[in-house]
Design a protein around this nucleic acid. Sequence first.
DNA 1: CTCCAGGTTCCGG
DNA 2: CCGGAACATGGA
Length: 285
Amino acid sequence: MSGWGFPLSRIAAHDFDLALTLDSGQVFHWVKADAGFSGVIGDVPVYVEQRGESLAVSKGAGRVVRRYFALDHPLSEIYETFPKDEPVTTALGFCRGLRIIRQPAWECLATFITSSMKQVAHIQQMSHAIRRNFGERVVLGGAELFAYPSAARLAEAGEPELRACKLGYRAKNLLAAARMIAAGEVDLARIEKLDDERAVEELCRLPGVGEKVANCVLLFAYGRLAAFPIDVWIERVLRELYFKRKRKVTAKQLKLFSQKYFGRFGGYAQQYLFHHARKTRRKGE
DNA sequence: CTCCAGGTTCCGG
DNA sequence: CCGGAACATGGA
């Protein structure tokens, strides 16, 4: 039993760091609760708590949790494919146990549409506001949680209601994207069948989705572990650590370099470099 | 107050 | 293809 009076069950979780994973900027709605975290996976309210090499999870959620947190990813095999250079080695030492999770495609996509030019803290606020205002309310023990609203649900919202969630100019994009998905103009299930390049192209048909967001979705929702999103942090890392004394380095060059240099699990390397940079960089530098 | 944040889009070289 | 600018909002 947990402190809030719902039953727990235990599942094995080797090479997994729950807190690290939830703090790595992949997903934005989990909250600390008791000795663990509570959140919603799809429409299932879940409590998760790390206990060494296993997890205590709210009863019945074991299978969903295993899949969501990608406990089947072969981390040691993935680490072996990493380039043996200083930046990646340092990031790996900092991030061991961080897993690339498998989020439901729509909520991942929608959340990253709202992420542009926003700090993680603010993305969290927007995610919570959208869930609270439009999402299905679910209950776990005494606590109430909210699922992410479907595309169809958001499609019938008004732009002012979305702006009330502090989305700013992103409201228009999220609304338009929700309408296209709800209308079947873009089919997220079909993305599964496309190769990475085609999938990015298809996702980029949605307003507010460019290459960076599309790659985040491939990586964090579709399990395309080679996808390598290049945001401001990773761009800095690449420029400063891999192109140290180069005059002009274009976006195209950064993309080509990262795709061939980091290999078939480049997404993992990217996430480790990102998280390490974000957590260790002081503002003056 | 200023700076900047897990960008995208549009526009002129 | 490349560099700039506009676009909202709130932490730091």
